[in-house]
Design a protein around this nucleic acid. Structure first.
Length: 495
RNA sequence: GGCGCGGUACCCAAGUGGUAAGGGAGAGGUCUGCAAAACCUUUAUGCGUGGGUUCGAUUCCCACCCGCGCCUCCA
């Protein structure tokens, strides 16, 4: 069964097929690097990550380009406030974005491109639009796109601009536009602001032109998928279509994928409501990166996700159940042989996971399949019905799961520790919760040291010196290591 | 006002014209030196409310209530 995706342009779920052989060319709107990214941003980035991971798992070669918007009004304002250049200002937040993406196991796109590295190409595209009559210059040196010349304007957002929509507010601009709806391609320089000298004169680019320029430069005039948050449908993506298709006369993007906004504790996230969280905020409050990723992934991308602290705890427990299951498969000495029933379970789970994701990335369905397997196999193992020969197939199914969800590998402690170090370097010690400090500890003991203490613990238990063995377990617990005794021996994991 | 999405158990959540996956949490039990893990049982005659279509609707239609989004360069 092929992958099906909801295409905002057609407003339908469609079968996905790449334009060119086996190669998927996709573009995703990346961060505007004026501050640390919040969990809403990262829901969208995780959706993109899920898509690219699943495309690769499905056998496609993926070329994924993501832009970094490193010049806009906010950046210019903040840089001026801090008395630094735009480049200096954005460097820190661009780096922070990558760190947060790493913390959440978001894969890097094949290309991560900066707007400011493509200014001349943007100017060139604008010049081309002027040449074709789609753009015009105003007296102050700004350039605008003439939407009256592009009849299809509104096809993505399903808006009718034939007659000016009545209810919509129309912004009063200080510039001299032909039509209030025309949008800025290029902004004339203002004193003290970042500016570039180009073939169309001095100034800086409007927001939308960067994505048209960079996506077509690296992916071609027509490519497969363009992703972003739902808020970008209008005006950003609508404007990209107008700019690009006006220039090339070709269909710009084939499938538009938009992720729904999330709510925090039932309300829209906003600084004024005090429910605005960055990834770093949550880690410093004692939540693991894997919990955050799991929660953000557990709700299909077209459904509103209510992000709550209760949900974060639930996610942590769910991840723990999966990790425990994997640990059991890896450490328990199962009897020789194979079981047809278990092989069937593995196959069924693998198929259902795939068809769930094929179904417009229904991550909830995929999760259901995996948890079904966990319960069935645990029960079979308790009954002695899982054999050594079944383990590989089961681990492969978990691997298939991990390739998409990326929450089984337990490196939370190290990541938490890195965030703690960052907080200290920023003078944010008071933001570090007790839980976070506790989690960070789990990364402090090396495996070899843990193994030595675990061996001592086992030896003490054999001698039935429970006082000694419990003392060692308590000591390890102090350092964030959890010991579990099973009938087949001891195993351990980091908190 | 225009356009669009959603309301499923304590919480998260899948789903279908034929009688409600899965996870978390709670309760009871099994196992166990203890702890943990794991398993079993249990928690919606019910899927926002009221009508309608149908042999039969949570699933289709209508109305209403509630939440949310876009229409202002917020993912």
């Amino acid at each position: 069964m092929p992958l099906e995706l909801f295409n905002t342009l057609s407003a339908k779920v469609e079968e996905f097929h790449p334009l060119e052989d086996n190669l998927v060319r996709m573009y995703a709107c990346g961060p505007t690097v004026y501050d640390y990214g919040h969990i809403g941003n990262f829901r969208t980035f995780i959706v993109v990550d899920t898509l690219r991971r699943f495309l690769k798992q499905s056998g496609y070669q993926v070329k994924h380009v993501m832009n970094v918007t490193d010049v806009d009004d906010k950046i210019i304002r903040n840089a001026a406030r801090d008395g630094v250049t735009v480049q200096e200002y954005t460097k820190k937040y661009r780096q922070a974005f990558l760190e947060d993406a790493d913390a959440l196991n978001i894969e890097h796109p094949e290309m991560l491109v900066n707007a400011t590295d493509h200014i001349q190409e943007m100017a060139h595209l604008i010049a081309g639009l002027v040449g074709k009559g789609y753009a015009y210059r105003t007296d102050d040196g700004s350039y605008y796109f003439r939407i009256a010349k592009f009849p299809e304007y509104g096809k993505l957002s399903k808006k009718d601009f034939a007659g000016m929509s009545d209810g919509a507010r129309v912004d009063v601009d200080e510039y001299d536009k032909d039509n209030a709806r025309d949008f800025a391609l290029w902004k004339a320089p203002k004193p003290g602001e970042a500016r570039w000298e180009t073939e169309i004169g001095p100034g800086r680019p409007g927001w939308h032109i960067e994505c048209s320029t960079m996506s077509m430069k690296y992916l071609g005039e027509s490519f497969d998928i363009h992703c972003g948050g739902e808020d970008l449908i209008f005006p950003h993506h609508e404007n990209e279509i107008a700019q690009s298709e006006a220039m090339t006369g070709k269909r710009f993007v084939h499938v538009w994928v938009h992720s729904r906004f999330l709510l925090v504790e039932g309300e829209k996230m906003s600084k004024s409501l005090g429910n605005f969280y960055t990834v770093r905020d949550l880690i410093l409050k004692g939540h693991k990166p894997s919990s955050i990723r799991f929660l953000l992934m557990s709700v299909p991308y077209r459904k509103q996700l209510n992000f709550t602290f209760d949900g974060l705890t639930q996610a942590a427990n769910s991840v723990e159940r999966l990790r425990n299951f994997k640990l059991r498969l890896e450490s328990e000495p199962f009897p020789e042989g194979t079981s047809e029933a278990i092989a069937g379970t593995a196959k069924k789970t693998s198929d259902e996971m795939r068809s769930g994701l094929d179904d417009d990335l229904n991550t909830a369905r995929a999760l259901g399949a995996v948890f079904d397997m966990v319960r069935d196999v645990n029960a079979a193992a308790d009954a002695g019905d899982v054999r050594k020969g079944d383990v590989l197939a089961l681990l492969q199914v978990l691997q298939q799961f991990e390739e998409i969800f990326a929450v089984l590998k337990d490196d939370d402690a190290a990541k938490v520790r890195a965030t703690v170090e960052w907080a200290k370097s920023e003078g944010l010690e008071d933001k570090i919760s007790a839980e976070t400090a506790e989690l960070g500890k789990a990364a402090s003991l090396a495996d070899a040291d843990v193994e030595r203490l675990v061996a001592e613990h086992s030896q003490a238990r054999k001698m039935r010196d429970f006082a000694r063995s419990d003392a060692i377990r308590a000591e390890l617990a102090e350092n964030g290591i959890i010991l579990e005794n099973t009938k087949d021996g001891v195993r351990w994991k980091r908190k």
